[in-house]
Amino acid sequence: MHDPLIDKTIQYLNCLRDDNDISIKHIVLGSYFTVVELSDNNVGAVMSYYNANHLINGGLMHIINDVIANDPQLLTSKDGFSHSIFNDWKNDHQFSLACACILCALTSALSQPYLSTNKTNEFIIHKEFPYHSKIFDSKSALVIGFGGYLPFLIKETSINNIYVCDLSYKTRYEEMNSMLRDWLIDQPEKKITFFDSFEDHADKEYDLLSITGSSLCNGTLSQILNAHKNSFNIVQGQSAGIFPKFLFEAGVDMVSTTIKPRAIVKDAQKDLSGKFLTQYFEGGLPFIYLLPN
């Protein structure tokens, strides 16, 4: 279910790191975000794409905690989720979604030391939004995942034709259109087109793509990038915080994300709805911008 770029990144980071005994200390399956803390205290977090209540009420969190207590290295690869201890869950679609999110959060945690210090010099880290003419002067843009850079593209660029693909558009129609009206108050010339299926529009060309990082969790990022190799591609958001080597090789031009503090683990554990995480993930963490070297 998760994107193949995640497997490549985990394998690469396992080769890079000095500590071969790294293990998982905590996993939090929350309705808002999935959080992983490693034995070296690095933390990763990605948006949750599963029904957390279904998994928790079914006892999955107890099983995961038992695994971490007895074999904390087992879940540091996708093979760990094939262990017999998960036999009762293997045909559960929500379990598959949770495994994908855990692996993405694990990749995020493994990546954090490199995003803060750039030990390998394989990419450039900017703390300020980098100017690029293809961002500001494009003619058309596709935003995958409502929000993200959509208000920025409306208010701060000359792009008049903006397309938005969001799988939840039909169920969040009123909410999205209300926010959109506010963003468009001073931009009447902007044309915004919504759709909820990427496949129906995959063959259309855009100058710029702004892609939610959570596409790594639902396995769609590689498909999107393969369809738009000639666009200027940005992957953005809290879930995009992974070592970017393979993102750049796949056609990403910029990654916009954050470094995750340890404090989010305890706040995620306090309330699985994620209400204590909004202070971090809704404007509380400074963004960094990763570019190819």
Rank of each mutant, 00 (worst) to 15 (best):
E249A: 13
N218A: 04
G219L: 09
L184I: 05
V36M: 08
Y169C: 03
T220V: 05
E128V: 00
P286H: 13
M47K: 15
S133E: 15
L272Q: 13
D182G: 00
K90Y: 09
Y50A: 02
H126V: 00
D79H: 11
H201Q: 12
V164E: 10
M47L: 14
H62I: 13
I154K: 07
R181L: 09
K139N: 12
L167S: 15
L153H: 04
I224G: 01
I24Y: 03
G80P: 06
G44A: 01
N293V: 03
V143R: 03
S96Y: 11
K127P: 00
M1L: 06
S158E: 14
V143H: 01
S116A: 11
F194N: 04
D79V: 03
Y206S: 03
T212W: 02
Y32F: 15
I162E: 06
C101Y: 02
T157Q: 08
S23H: 11
S39L: 08
H26D: 13
T34V: 03
T157L: 04
L16R: 13
A202Y: 03
S197W: 01
H228G: 02
G219V: 05
A141E: 08
Q11R: 07
E205N: 15
F33Q: 13
Q223E: 13
K134F: 07
D18P: 00
D19G: 07
G274A: 01
A69D: 14
G80Y: 10
A98M: 11
A69C: 03
I234R: 10
L277I: 06
S178E: 14
Y173T: 06
S82I: 01
K260A: 02
P4A: 04
A240G: 05
S222E: 08
V164M: 11
Y50M: 05
L285T: 05
D267V: 00
Q73S: 14
K78R: 14
I259E: 12
V164G: 09
E175L: 07
R262P: 00
V36E: 06
L16Y: 04
F86V: 00
N91Q: 15
L216A: 07
L291T: 09
K204W: 03
F246M: 04
F152M: 14
I154Y: 10
D207C: 13
Q236W: 01
T258R: 06
E249S: 11
T257H: 01
N41C: 06
N87S: 15
F152E: 10
L285R: 03
L216E: 10
T193P: 06
N70R: 15
V252S: 04
K25G: 09
D21H: 14
D166A: 12
Y163Q: 12
L153Y: 03
F276G: 05
G213M: 00
C104G: 13
R17H: 02
E189L: 08
T76Y: 01
L225G: 08
N161S: 15
G219Y: 12
E128W: 00
K155H: 08
I234A: 04
S178M: 12
L225Q: 11
L38D: 10
N230M: 10
N14K: 15
S168Q: 15
